[in-house]
Write a protein that binds this DNA or RNA. Structure first.
Length: 891
DNA sequence: ACAGTATTTTTTTTT
DNA sequence: AAAATACTGT
């Protein structure tokens, strides 16, 4: 046991107070880099040693599994191996654990499936097809977003149904939705049906994990009592990113609303009043509103929890004053926030470095060369460098540049390992084995690998299932009653026998998931199909499958009581950042990730890329003040990741889905005080020309073109910085690096882990024997294409239209393909190519169509030039027509 | 039933 | 530019 002094001796007064605070409810307002993780772990240790609590009485919620593992590790250092017995996990993992134990009470049988986004989309598609919903207009994604909103706010399907579609019964067939779209009705019906089918399939989605746990606690006093008795201390990290459901969950677990008298000294075992709650967060770092996070949870904490105490941590131990000044200046543009003053004792440090590139490729190339130089001239380790961007798609050009420069990197995020097709297929088998009622996964594997069971066979089985109120697999079991053609019946029987055999095998080997994986891979034919193929991509798919098997083996080794269901759980809840190496572990490579993933991390050197209007802030967030405020918080998060050196870069032209577009500098750049930024290149060549800066000329601007006049000779630094180097002649260091760049490019297949010289040859999954879950793990991400030619350079710079005014909404301009400009569109009304305007139409209008003849307009969607009208052509059916191109005439 | 071809959409951010 | 989807012909 540690002495009290060990726990608080090296803390500042606020931190120490937070660690020791005795009381019902504590909010720690932890500014970026203020040592909140340290305070949190110390507080837990304090509760154990000084309050005399048992480890099993503590529930600590973190944001990711990796954060949980890290916290547990640090706790082990403080209090010893008892830390292993504490609940330290994410909301979702904790809920799974609770539901596995007590879910039966609310109808969740053991072995329930956890649906990921793709599974949910499949389910909504199935429902949409059955209910005759126009899935073009109501995309599964948008429907799911709505359902997720309901869930995050704990609005049940029953109440929705009562309000909007009282006569719909879940599971009923042939329901006619109101033809002209009562939208609420549609959502209510789909929501109800969705929950119904999840229940039938013994499955839950991500949101359900929280919602159904709340339901369990509210509906089953015995269960609630058990957990309230058990957890006497609840600590929640990143509280600003909790949603309403999670907020309620915390209250239910703590028993805040159980109507018992608070016990001022309830520090020991036993059920005495509500549990003590500690939450940690920073409202300036709330960046998950899009998935329901409600900033009010943290803002109203003091009202929500009586006698709450707030302690603010404002000393920053991470960054230089320059970086903090920039962060403070940017976030100050958000309205309605409590002003906060982060300060540091680390001194001014280096200026922020800015760079304006001509395009994304050049931006990336400059970053690569800059990193190479830092490495050589200032001895900066690659693992001390992170490159961040708004959206995953931006990683492409960066990866290419790093490969070209031969620098080792690791990419975090992108397509997750478990979301890759082949891995998902294998998992679907496992899921279907554990939970045969899981229709979505069962249907997925019916014809994977190809075994001649197509849409026809599937619908036969579905019909049986529908009429008998049975599951899809029940239908398969009753092949002989389906009246299927001989061929189909034979194949179905083979599938039935396969699944039966696999299930028996699984039951017999439940403690050995890796063996079950192996059995599934070989018996299902999954592996064979890929091995037989000569598509080079399939080789990497085989790799991935074998990686899946090693992950299973690792799980098996480090889990006390392994089971197939347990293994599936771990695969369902991985986060992007879980792939990061643990602290203390050195990957030896540059880290690439989105700003969201970067939350909670810190690096000596940070590149913030793509600082353009439309990229960051993202174009879809610029209209709305609150969304823009969230983007700004994201910028704040990004800036405050940097410890010593911060770079901000942008590209004047960026290709977005195939088309090059001119990009204006991000407004966030303007919000950083100019004197903090040392611009290595303030304007891109094109911009300079336009602004009459002279010197322009873009013809000869080949790849190395950035080492132009404003680059050399500028010296900055000094000032007692850690890296203390001076920039001198800056050229040429770029490409002489990597030995193995060509082999690295080749190895792109499949993994997307570290490339480059220091890592040597090809990267494969798990090459370095990292373990899944705790220590970094190596399942990769992102598929790969051949990295070769650096993509086309955008050639035609648009003829010189307006300057670079920074106001107004229009932020990007398409570069016209030189030819004569299109006929002007009249502003306001959206006129289409055939001269028809959506504004001219009304529901009920009659039109003629060259092919379908006479029809009646049933619906209108104004999407500007892409407006769509829906027309009922009677016997020819109802068609959706693109107004701009449809051969129609108004009558 | 499926392979191959044409067309359409896609980009936020993630547990 | 790439991937998902729809369509067409065998």
């Amino acid at each position: 046991m540690r002495a009290a002094d060990d726990l608080i001796g090296d803390l500042n007064p606020q931190q120490a107070e937070a660690v020791q605070y005795r009381g019902q409810a504590l909010l720690i307002g932890a500014g970026a880099g203020s040592g909140k993780t340290r305070v949190l772990t110390r507080r837990i240790a304090w509760i154990l040693t000084q309050f005399g609590a048992w480890p099993s009485q503590i529930l600590a919620i973190t944001f990711t599994n990796k954060a949980a593992a890290e916290m547990r590790e640090r706790l082990t250092g403080l209090i010893g191996p008892v830390a292993q017995r504490m609940w330290v996990s994410t909301f979702h993992s904790a809920c799974v654990r609770i539901l596995r134990r007590d879910g039966e009470q609310i109808g969740l049988k053991s072995g329930f499936s956890i649906y990921d986004t793709a599974d949910c989309e499949r389910l909504v598609k199935l429902i949409g097809a059955d209910l005759n919903i126009d899935l073009k207009r109501y995309t599964p994604r948008s429907i799911l977003a709505r359902i997720s909103d309901y869930k995050n706010n704990l609005q049940g399907w029953r109440e929705q149904l009562n309000t909007y579609a009282a006569d719909y019964k879940p599971g009923q067939k042939g329901y006619q939705l109101g033809r002209f779209g009562n939208v609420e009705e549609l959502y209510a019906v789909v929501y109800a049906e969705y929950q119904h089918r999840l229940a039938m399939a013994n499955a839950v989605d991500f949101d359900d994990l929280i919602v159904r746990t709340v339901e369990l606690l509210r509906g089953c006093p015995m269960v609630a009592e058990y957990y309230r008795h058990k957890f006497r201390y609840i600590l929640v990290d990143e509280y600003q990113d909790t949603n309403h459901a999670q907020y309620v969950l915390v209250r239910e677990l703590a028993g805040v609303d159980a109507g018992e008298r608070p016990q001022p000294d309830a520090v020991a075992a036993g059920r005495q009043g509500p549990a003590w709650i500690t939450v940690v967060g920073d409202s300036d770092q709330s960046i998950y509103a899009f998935r329901g996070a409600d900033i009010r949870n943290i803002q109203d904490f003091e009202q929500d929890f009586p006698n709450a105490k707030t302690i603010m941590l404002e000393q920053n131990y991470r960054s230089t004053q320059t970086i903090l000044d920039a962060a403070n200046a940017v976030i100050a543009h958000n309205e309605g926030r409590k002003p906060k003053k982060l300060w540091t004792a680390l001194g001014k440090g280096e200026p922020i470095v800015g760079y304006a590139a001509d395009n994304a490729q050049q931006e990336a190339a400059w970053i690569a060369s800059e990193i190479a130089r830092l490495h050589v001239e200032a001895g900066v380790a690659y693992s001390d460098v992170a490159i961040m961007y708004r959206a995953n798609a931006q990683s492409r050009s960066l990866e290419e540049a790093l490969i070209k420069a031969g620098l080792p990197y690791q990419l975090i995020g992108g397509t997750r390992f478990y979301e890759r097709r082949e891995v998902k297929d294998a998992i679907a088998y496992l899921q279907a084995i554990v939970n045969p009622a899981d229709d979505v996964n069962m249907r997925r594997i019916l014809n994977v690998p190809k075994r001649g069971l197509g849409a026809r066979a599937e619908s036969l089985v579905t019909m049986y299932a529908d009429t008998h109120a049975a599951t899809f697999f029940d239908g398969v079991l009753h092949v002989d009653e389906l009246g299927a053609p001989t061929r189909t019946a034979t194949q179905l029987r083979a599938f039935r026998d396969l699944m039966t055999a696999l299930r028996e095998f699984a039951v017999a080997h439940d403690g050995k998931p890796s063996e079950i994986v192996a059995e599934v891979l070989s018996k299902s034919g999954l592996l064979e199909e890929l091995q037989r193929s000569d598509d080079p991509q399939d080789a990497s798919r085989v790799e991935n499958l074998s990686q899946l098997q090693s992950v299973a083996a690792e799980y098996e080794q480090k889990t006390p009581d392994p089971s197939l269901a347990g293994f599936l759980e771990t695969t369902a809840l991985v986060a992007d950042s879980d792939q990061l190496p643990m602290q203390g572990e050195d990957s030896g490579s540059i880290t690439l990730m989105t700003l969201h993933t970067a939350k909670g991390l810190e690096y000596p050197v940070v590149f913030l890329t793509g600082l353009e209007q439309g990229t960051f802030p993202h174009s879809r967030s610029m209209e709305d003040t609150s969304e823009l405020a969230e983007e700004r918080r994201l910028a704040y998060v990004g800036i405050t990741r940097a410890q010593r050196r911060l770079y901000v870069t942008r590209a004047a032209v960026r290709a977005q889905w195939g088309q090059a577009a001119e990009m204006m500098p991000s407004q966030f750049l303007d919000e950083i005080p100019d004197e903090l930024i040392d611009w290595k290149r303030r304007e891109a060549g094109m911009e300079r020309m336009r602004g009459g800066w002279g010197n322009g000329g873009f013809g000869d601007d080949e790849f190395g073109g950035w080492d132009d006049d404003d680059f050399g000779g500028v010296s900055y630094g000094g000032a007692g910085s850690t890296f203390g180097s001076t920039y001198g002649s800056a050229r040429g260091t770029g490409s002489s690096y990597g030995s193995g760049s060509s082999s690295a490019a080749r190895s792109g297949y499949g993994s997307g882990r570290s490339y480059g010289s220091s890592y040597g040859s090809r990267s494969t999954y798990g090459g370095s024997g990292r373990s899944y879950g705790s220590s970094g793990s190596s399942y990769g991400s992102r598929s790969s294409k051949s990295y070769g030619s650096s993509g086309s350079r955008s050639s035609s710079y648009g003829s010189g239209s307006s300057g670079s005014g920074r106001s107004g909404k229009v932020t990007t301009r398409r570069i016209a393909p030189s030819s004569g400009s299109k006929p002007k569109q009249n502003p306001g009304a959206s006129t289409a190519g055939n001269g028809l305007s959506i504004a001219d139409f009304q529901i009920g209008d009659k039109i003629t169509h060259d092919k379908f003849g006479l029809g009646t307009v049933v619906d209108l969607q104004d999407k500007g030039p892409k407006s769509v009208i829906t027309v009922d052509f009677g016997s020819d059916g109802v068609k959706r027509l693109m107004l701009a191109v449809a051969p129609i005439e108004k009558l």
